[in-house]
Simulated scan of single mutants.
Amino acid sequence: MTASAHAVIELRYFAAAAQAAGRAEERLEAAGPLTLAGLREQLAGRGVEMARIISISTFLVNGLSTPADSLAPLADGDRVDVLPPFAGG
């Protein structure tokens, strides 16, 4: 499979991230190359609360913990989970 400039990324939001996003999941179409760092910046631009949640969240890309500042390109069909800190016990 060849790399494409167009990718559809599946996003799943949990707990406070879902509340800030107003949904539990969405599909994001990227017109060009996209990294997790770039995705975080894009999501943070959606509003003050989303920016706050994104800044304290951890991220899984296809089930693997990934540094929030990762510059590795995301590929078509990748799944990104946004996990804010969880409280309770």
Rank of each mutant, 00 (worst) to 15 (best):
A15C: 09
L71A: 11
F14M: 01
P85Y: 10
F59W: 09
L71Q: 12
S57K: 04
V82G: 04
P84Q: 04
P67I: 05
G22C: 04
M1T: 13
A16C: 02
H6M: 12
S57E: 06
T58N: 15
P84W: 08
G22P: 03
F59E: 08
A16S: 13
Y13H: 09
F86N: 04
L36K: 05
I56H: 14
I54K: 00
D69K: 01
H6W: 08
V82M: 06
L64T: 15
L43I: 11
T58A: 14
Q19I: 08
M50F: 11
S65W: 00
V8Y: 00
N62F: 03
A21V: 07
D69R: 05
R79W: 00
P33H: 11
P73W: 05
A16D: 10
P67D: 07
L11C: 08
E49K: 07
G88F: 10
V48F: 09
L60P: 05
L11F: 01
R12H: 15
A75Q: 11
V8A: 10
A68N: 01
G47W: 15
L60Q: 06
A24L: 13
R46H: 15
D78T: 01
G45E: 14
G77S: 10
A17S: 04
F14H: 09
A7M: 11
V82N: 01
L71S: 08
A31I: 01
G32P: 00
P33K: 12
P73K: 03
R23N: 04
T35W: 04
A72L: 14
L64I: 15
M50H: 03
A51L: 03
L11D: 01
V8Q: 11
R46W: 14
M50Q: 09
L39W: 10
R40D: 09
S55L: 05
A16M: 11
G88K: 11
Q19K: 12
L34I: 03
A7Y: 07
L74I: 03
E49Q: 12
A87M: 12
G32M: 04
I9M: 03
R52L: 00
P84L: 06
G88I: 08
L64S: 15
A21M: 14
P73N: 01
D76K: 06
D81S: 07
G89D: 00
A87P: 11
L43A: 07
P73Y: 07
E26P: 02
F86C: 10
R27P: 06
L83M: 13
A31M: 01
R46C: 12
A16I: 07
L83T: 07
F14E: 02
R23A: 09
R12V: 15
T35C: 02
F14N: 04
Y13L: 06
F86W: 13
N62G: 06
G45S: 08
E49C: 05
S65M: 14
D76H: 10
A17I: 09
A75M: 09
S57Y: 07
A30W: 04
F86G: 04
A15V: 10
I56C: 12
T2H: 12
A20N: 09
A72V: 13
I56D: 12
A68T: 07
D78H: 06
L11R: 00
N62M: 10
A16W: 10
A20S: 12
A68L: 07
R27C: 13
